[in-house]
Design a protein around this nucleic acid. Structure first.
Lengths: 298, 298
DNA sequence: AAGTTGTTTTTTATGGATAAAGTTCATGCT
DNA sequence: AGCATGAACTTTATCCATAAAAAACAACTT
């Protein structure tokens, strides 16, 4: 049966809005809520019905108003708010990156399905989606081959990344001074500086910043294939570093400094300086990844 | 139910081998056949059983020998030898590239499933696979968005292609003279010259040559992401030009000449000459594609 | 007429079943 | 022991069913 995770997530979000007073007094219309939550009205109505039922809101003459206070116990547990597909993704990435899955292993849909507690269909869909990341390969009628999260993979990935990023950085720097992206860059620079000041306690926030920065650079001259490639990078890094926390603070600290140099270079519009800063940053990111890959075998 | 296309294709291939005398006299063992046909022994046995049943081969004391002559009527029809997945691919590409599907159209899994006569699952799997080509996009819980086979698409595609091909061509030219790839290149050059001589009658053969050529260039320094990207190109071009035959002969004639210039440039090892030849060829390929795209709207 | 809510219809996400194809085990023969 | 065939078992490709979510339709209100 299809999961009702969309509903549960919407419910939790509404509960939080109620608790934080964002929905004080009379509630907005179903359509208004629908827009805010990015779900269908069908789902909004289901949420409202449950809220009424739990007396978290009251309904009189078709008018809805806030009811009793929201308690922690009102929330659905987090696991119930992510779809099966997302679960499969998480479990697979853990299986692949943390387990002792060796390159050359073949992947068995049925076995994974049993292990993850889902139907084979879901596994297969995930694998098809995941195959574009270059880590697995399909052999028809037979199964999937795990090619390994290896040094080769990292090298090939970074070779492309350097090509794309150099291209995008140069194009970014050649935008007219009037482009709003310069302002966004300036804002991002400030965010970097602020994070740097509190790096000891907030170093986890870097990955979000990193993402915003690299995506901003691509914005000046969009190319869907470059965007897609950046999706691969984000995805891989997200999961890899989720379980590889060694030196995280130091790593992020260094990266912030590199970003700042890179941003300055962009602002200078000097092509050679940009190339140097960009290469320096990517070389360092690559070295970091390689180091952690070697660490994996120990 | 799963289709028995693997069996039928294997049967047809075996029939052809019998007819062409490649299996004269006593037949090889099941294992030997299995290796030759790249299918499992289970399938080989099924083929053999049917061959015996039709008296195309005889079996005495466990020894198999050729039987009566193979007739045209013995073959399974071609449609029955391609999997559902492949059919979906073909029908979808036709729907997309030939129909009047406008950019921004949303794609409905259920509707396509009905139209193509398959289960929704197959459609979805195809769409997931196809989504990496940058022509469609998934909106969760909602459906797929067709972004259109537009000029933008072609421009973005070729921007990447130029980057990749320049990189690969330069790396190719820097291989040691002892590399076997130089011989392969020389052989390919001859094939080009031969095709050129008979261009009027054999211009269809160009696309195979084109593929071999571009893949060869990538072979010198493999990168899985570049290979994947070339898959996209091949796929798109295959289907696009399958239904766009205008000026095919002339187009291919020009491309052969460009390839020859490109090959000469590579053999010269002169970086600048290589860059010029490579760019010239790709610019021309792009112009051709753009022209045919405009033609589509008429 | 535009925005609400109630109702019905359509579509997606997910599980389940099964024939075909692949793989492994068993037996027998040189 | 090594290879051939036979049989049993496992996995993939494919269809079908259904609850959840989205979309479309309808009726009502101001």
């Amino acid at each position: 049966m299809r999961t009702d995770t969309v509903y549960k997530k919407a419910f939790n979000r509404t509960a939080t809005m109620l608790r934080d007073g964002q929905l004080a007094g009379e509630l907005p219309s179903e359509n208004e809520l629908r827009r805010r939550m990015c779900v269908s009205r069908t789902t909004v109505r289901k949420v409202l019905r449950e809220l009424v039922h739990r007396e978290l809101i009251t309904e009189r003459d078709g008018l809805r108003a806030t009811g009793r206070a929201v308690g922690d116990y009102d929330y659905y547990p987090d696991v119930e708010t992510t779809s099966r597909a997302k679960h499969v993704e998480q479990q697979f990435m853990e299986w692949m990156l943390r387990g002792d899955t060796k390159p050359g292993t073949s992947i068995n849909e049925l076995e994974l399905a049993r292990q993850f507690g889902v139907a084979t269909n879901g596994i297969r869909e995930f694998l098809i989606r995941f195959s574009r990341f270059g880590l697995i390969e399909k052999r028809p009628n037979t199964g999937w081959l795990f090619k390994g999260f290896t040094e080769d993979f990292a090298l090939e990935l970074f070779e492309i990344r350097v090509m794309f990023e150099l291209r995008s950085a140069q194009l970014f720097s050649r935008q007219p001074d009037s482009s709003p992206l310069w302002d966004k860059l300036a804002a991002l620079k400030i965010a970097h500086i602020e994070l740097l000041a509190r790096i000891e306690s907030r170093f986890h926030d870097f990955s979000g910043l990193d993402n915003r920065f690299h995506r901003l650079i691509n914005e000046a001259s969009p190319n869907r294939f470059i965007d897609d490639f950046y999706d691969i990078i984000s995805f891989i890094f997200h999961y890899h570093y989720q379980w590889n926390k060694q030196d995280e603070e130091q790593r992020n600290h260094a990266a912030i400094l590199e970003h700042l140099a890179y941003i300055d270079a962009l602002e200078s519009r000097d092509p050679e300086r940009i190339e140097r800063a960009c290469r320096a940053h990517l070389a360092s990111a690559r070295a970091t990844l390689m180091r952690s890959l070697i660490g994996l075998d120990e």
